[in-house]
């Protein structure tokens, strides 16, 4: 069974950029969500073993998604990918249970190093 990766961002351009940055040899199923509400739904459906999560989104923002994951104990490893690079923002998401923080704009090197560092990428 392959790993389910969810890309949750309100910008279709950002979702594409993120998908392109994933290592080519990483055998995963990629899913997409356009805001936090869709993101949480997808995680409940088992589509988010690993979640690349934006922070600034309509309906429910990334902080809301992290809170929901923690409150409902949903099985998701979250990597926040955001343009909000204030040290405070990084600290807040880590406190809310995010595993890692990647600054936008995302690129393949940043994605690979985080996936390797946290031992998420397997089966390569």
């Amino acid at each position: 069974m392959s790993l389910n990766v969810l890309i949750c961002d309100d910008s279709s351009f950002a979702r594409k950029q993120m998908a392109r940055a994933l290592p080519e040899e990483w055998q995963v199923e990629v899913h997409f969500a356009g805001d936090g509400v869709e993101g949480v739904d997808a995680i409940r459906e088992g589509k988010g073993d690993v979640v690349f999560l934006d922070l600034t989104m309509p309906n429910m923002d990334g902080y809301g998604v992290l809170e929901t994951i923690r409150r409902d104990d949903l099985p998701a490893m979250v990597i926040v990918v955001s343009g909000d690079i204030q040290p405070d923002a990084q600290e807040r998401v880590k406190k809310l249970g995010a595993m890692a923080f990647i600054k936008k704009p995302i690129d393949a090197d940043k994605a690979r190093s985080v996936l390797t560092e946290y031992g998420i990428m397997t089966g390569a």
Partner: peptide, 8 residues
Amino acid sequence: ELTNVAMG
């Protein structure tokens, strides 16, 4: 999205 990154 470009603005999002720049304003951040």
